[in-house]
Simulated scan of single mutants.
Amino acid sequence: MKIQRLNRDITQLRRQLMDASRRLRNEATADDRSWARLLVLGAIDRHVESATPSVLAADEGMRSSNLAAALRSLEARKLIVRTPDTKDRRKVRLRLSSAGRRFLDDSRARGERWLTEAMDACLTASERSDLIKAGALLDRITAYSKAAMPRSRKS
């Protein structure tokens, strides 16, 4: 009975996380295509100087052909800049252009405005604080790797 309840709780938590992620995505973007752009722009932003097509493909779990098409689209919109690697001219480094930075920052700001407004409207000050604290727990879960964690984490 206890295991069944835990499974239901985990299923509900997964659904809640997915619903929150979808809602945040919808609030942050104008259309489905801009979400795909944001994923790639966000990955370039996270990787800063080490952003290459192969790094992004691995990070976002994209096929190289899909990523190549996305990069061409971003470059055509002048949202990214490609530069040859200084040490290995066969490699290409990617960075956000100023327009790409604005696009990404504006989208993040829209999502954060909605999240702030929703939290203010739906939660008490104490609940907002609890939710912010839960973010640190989500960070730990997100960083989890079975191979890297010690086994004694049960309590």
Rank of each mutant, 00 (worst) to 15 (best):
M1F: 04
I3M: 02
Q4L: 11
N7M: 05
R8M: 08
I10N: 00
Q12A: 11
R14K: 13
R15I: 05
L17Y: 07
L17A: 09
M18E: 08
D19C: 10
D19F: 07
D19L: 15
R22M: 12
R23W: 03
L24K: 09
L24A: 05
R25K: 10
N26A: 12
N26S: 14
E27D: 06
D31W: 06
D32N: 12
S34P: 05
S34Y: 00
W35C: 07
L39F: 03
V40I: 14
V40A: 09
V40L: 01
L41P: 00
I44L: 06
D45E: 15
D45C: 02
E49A: 13
E49L: 02
E49N: 06
S50G: 07
A51G: 08
A57F: 04
A57L: 08
D59V: 02
E60Y: 06
M62Y: 11
M62K: 09
M62E: 01
M62V: 04
R63M: 02
S64F: 02
N66F: 13
L67F: 05
A68G: 12
A68C: 14
A70K: 03
R72Y: 12
R72I: 14
S73H: 03
L74M: 02
L74G: 07
L74F: 04
E75K: 02
E75F: 07
A76E: 14
R77Q: 13
V81W: 01
V81N: 02
T83F: 04
T83E: 10
T83P: 00
P84D: 11
P84S: 14
T86V: 11
R89K: 15
R89S: 13
R90G: 03
K91P: 05
V92R: 08
V92Q: 09
R93T: 01
R93S: 03
R95W: 00
R95N: 05
S97F: 02
R102P: 00
D105H: 14
D105S: 06
D105Y: 04
D106M: 14
D106S: 12
R108E: 00
R108F: 01
R110P: 05
R113M: 12
E117T: 13
A118C: 15
D120R: 11
C122G: 15
T124A: 10
S126W: 04
E127C: 10
R128C: 10
R128Q: 15
I132V: 15
K133E: 11
K133N: 11
R140A: 11
I141A: 15
A143G: 12
S145Q: 15
S145I: 08
M149H: 08
M149K: 04
M149P: 00
P150M: 03
P150E: 08
P150K: 09
S152K: 10
K154D: 02
K154S: 12
K154C: 05
K154T: 05
S155K: 10
